[in-house]
Amino acid sequence: MALLDIKNLTLEIDGTNGWIKALDKINLTIDSGEIRALVGESGSGKSLIVRAISGALPSNWRITADRMTWKNIDLLSMNDEERRKIMRNEIAVVFQNPLKSLDPSATLEEQLLESIPGNLLDKGYFWQRAQQRRVIAAKLLHKVGIKDHKRCLKSYPHQVPDDICQKFMIATALAPNPELIIADDPTRGMEITTKAQILRLLTRLNKTKDLSILFVGHDLLAISSMATSMTVLYCGQTVESGPMDKVRKRPLHPYTKALLDSAPSFRKDLPPKSPLSSLEGTIPSLQHLPIGCRLGPRCPRAQKECVKAPEPRRIHQHYYSCHFPLHREKR
């Protein structure tokens, strides 16, 4: 069963020249127990999707979707309070900059305790509840691999190293026993050993607690080792999505192929000192979006039809949006 099912999500931002479609008909599903990777280059709207799911939108944003459901309940039509309860108990978000996502003026203990919802405590008198919360907090920290929980809880965010901060963020995310964790580039700017630890931690949580993870990022190597399925995003449009191995072995969209080719670690046959492949040009800014398929101007296979946005097509579980996919001969 799909936990989170998003169809044709469009996010518009009120700019100076009218509404800009920052996300254009995004499709994304997350099944329970899977790790779904959301991949795209910087500026492709990955973080916008995360914010759209988590609610809390600025007043100059507008969201429309054909379907945006959480466990078959419509997220868009529910009121703020119901939405907040889902965010409190069922979905958790780990942001990309752990230090900035923590209140600098509060100790980590305060911030961890407040994210433990009251329904996880057994019925006790109210003066016993703080103690119960502390016990849970210590357990959570041990779970994510912070051994010295006393020292960690006493500290302010700026007093702990980045990796502990990120592990702490994962601990706060785990506090309400969520069913889905959205990890928005959780290993950005980290050392390779720390990165490996955090990725292992997420994978282990997925295996042991049957936790679904939406992993947002652009580290293809890490993603390919942990994710079960992948959605590729370009400039606010979903380009291709499907099971990890299918997408990786046989990309159907020219952009996915270019993306996979651009990662040197994926190409074992790469001779030394050969030029790395990349698409011409850069990702367009939000003010100058091309019509139709947004990859059009950069696409090696683009033709006249590409000025119309392609409908998503499907081969088994593998979806792609392209008029001239790679498995068909070029005309």
Partner: peptide
């Protein structure tokens, strides 16, 4: 960012403001 993060943790508006 940390206020956005607090909202996404499902705190109510008044909890975010007061804490």
């Amino acid at each position: 960012d940390f206020v956005q993060a607090a909202y996404s943790r499902g705190l109510t508006v008044s909890q975010v403001i007061f804490r």
